[in-house]
Structures are given as C-alpha cells and as structure tokens.
Design a protein around this nucleic acid. Structure first.
Length: 271
DNA sequence: ACAGCATCCTGATTGC
DNA sequence: TGCAATCAGGATGCTG
C-alpha cells in the first residue's frame, strides 16, 4: 500500500524523467484517467510536453510540465510507476514514451489508481489533492497543529488517516505511529493529553523518516520505480502481526476494525 | 455539518 | 480437492 515513504521512494527514482519530453502516450484503461474527459484530449495535451519536475505531495505524485500543466497521479493500493521494464503487461493502464526512447508504465492490478492532467488554474478539480493537510515532515506539522485537530470524538486513528488533516499516512504507518506513541487507536481524539499529542507528532515524523531510509514497506504489492521491494517491513511492530506477540512486552497483539480499516495494536503497551 | 458506511477492483488467502 | 466467501484499503459519494 503506497503511503508517504513509498511514494517518496518512487518519486526519488523518477527524477531521471526531468528535462525529458513526452513523445507518445497510450491509455489502455479509460477509467484510470479522471481529467480531461476524453483519453484523446489527455494524450494530445501531453504529447510534446517537457517534464520540468517530479515531486510528491501527500500520497500524490506530481509531474510538473511546461505550459503550466500538472499530471497528478495516485497509486492507491496496487498502482506502480515503472521506468525500467519495456513490457506492456495485462495490468498496464497508461504508458508514456519519452524522446530518447525511455518508457514509463503505469501498471495497476486493481484499477483504483488515477491520473489527472490539469492546468494550473483548474487544480481545484482534483479535490483530494487540493484539500490536502500539511506535510507531516514539515514544520507546519507540530504539536500545536495536531492538538487543534483533536477536538473530536472520532478515533485517533481515523483522525490521522484523514488526508485533509495530515497528508500521507495510511493504514500501515498509522498503526506503527500509534504503537510507538503508546496510544490505543480507538481512543477519542479529544481524550489525548498534550504530552500524548506531542509524542505522537514525534513518532509520526520518526516512523516516516525511517521508512523512507528503508525504501518503504513492501507488504505485498508495493515496488519502487525500478520494480524493487522496500525493506521497512522488517521493522514493523504491529501492522500485519495480529495474533502474534508484542515485540516489547510479549502480550498477544489484538485487532479491531476502526473506520473500516484493520487495526493491530498491543492492549498492554497502548493505553 | 458531519459521521459512518458502501463502492470501486482483482488476486491471494481462508473456510467448508 | 475444489469452489466460494472473505480480505486487502485510499478516496469518494451517498445516507441518515
């Protein structure tokens, strides 16, 4: 599941696309493209455009193109942007050919991933992108900010998964952060003390930084832009470990559905 | 206004 | 053994 560290790793690998020109575009799955309305429009606008920059915002990958256009991509669960293989698979949804022959495939088993090509002045059309909260690794995300978002009866896990409040956390890192902060994921946001909120901010930053160092987590589907796995799965304390023993206190890890998401936690370490 | 749930989709895993 | 049900989960749209 590509979350912030996985998306960052992909973006790092896609820097090779900078200053290249898009020579050809093929859309194999119409529903992958959200904007513009037709795939011929999508293909025609992209052809001849230069890639000025590739960057990450939350879980989105953004290609800054000349002519003030942005190609905004979301991998969702199984999307992969692969700049290595020249093979069109049954899961290739969109394919780009660059001026020097390099190919970029957007492969996506489950077809949840999306691409939107938008001009600078119509960015509001991509609501999820437009409404993103602060980057968790920036100064804007601090304990004062988090406290201001905790005045809610919703579960703390649901709050930190809300992309309009914090951009980039998904199910894996939400569970990991809450474990390291010693906070039960079911706790109401408003029940957290200032110290707990402060600790949670620190652990969110720590986990994301470490996961980026490790090239992200490959639990099942995630691969980087070269098709390689990440290594942070070796560092997980709770995600995917339901029924196993807590690495800290050796009690059995429990699991609950919170906001429709499987959540694993230690009832002893997380209060 | 907002919380909660269904929906999208396909492969892997689990259960009978 | 084989088939069917369940699970995985990010964002969105609908419902109460």
């Amino acid at each position: 599941m590509p979350e912030l560290p996985e998306v960052q790793t992909v973006v790092d690998g896609l820097q090779i696309l900078k200053d290249r020109f898009i020579e050809d575009v093929e859309v194999y799955n119409d529903n992958t493209v959200k904007n513009p309305n037709t795939k011929s429009e999508f293909e025609n606008i992209l052809k001849g455009k230069k890639v000025l920059d590739v960057f990450r915002r939350g879980k989105y990958i953004v290609f800054q193109l000349d002519g003030e256009y942005k190609l905004i991509t979301h991998l969702r669960m199984t999307g992969r942007l692969v700049a290595k293989e020249d093979v069109i698979s049954k899961y290739t949804r969109v394919r780009f050919v660059f001026n020097d022959g390099l190919k970029l495939n957007f492969n996506d088993v489950r077809k949840f991933g999306t691409m939107s090509l938008l001009h600078q002045d119509e960015m509001f059309k991509e609501k999820g992108y437009f409404n993103l909260g602060p980057e968790p690794l920036s100064q804007d995300f601090n304990k004062e900010y988090l406290l201001s978002k905790l005045a809610s009866s919703r579960a703390i896990k649901t709050i930190i998964l809300d992309q309009t409040k914090i951009a980039g956390l998904g199910n894996i890192y939400a569970d990991e952060c809450l474990f390291l902060a010693g906070i039960n994921p079911q706790r109401q946001g408003k029940s957290l003390t200032k110290d707990e909120a402060s600790l949670l901010v620190d652990k969110i930053k720590l986990v994301l930084e470490n996961a980026i160092e490790y090239g992200g987590t490959t639990f099942r589907d995630y691969r980087n832009s070269k098709g390689e796995s990440g290594k942070f799965q070796e560092c997980l304390f709770v995600y995917g470990r339901k029924g196993q023993l807590c690495l800290s206190c050796h009690n059995e890890l429990l699991h609950e559905k919170i906001g429709g998401r499987t959540s694993v936690f230690c009832p002893n370490c997380q209060r």
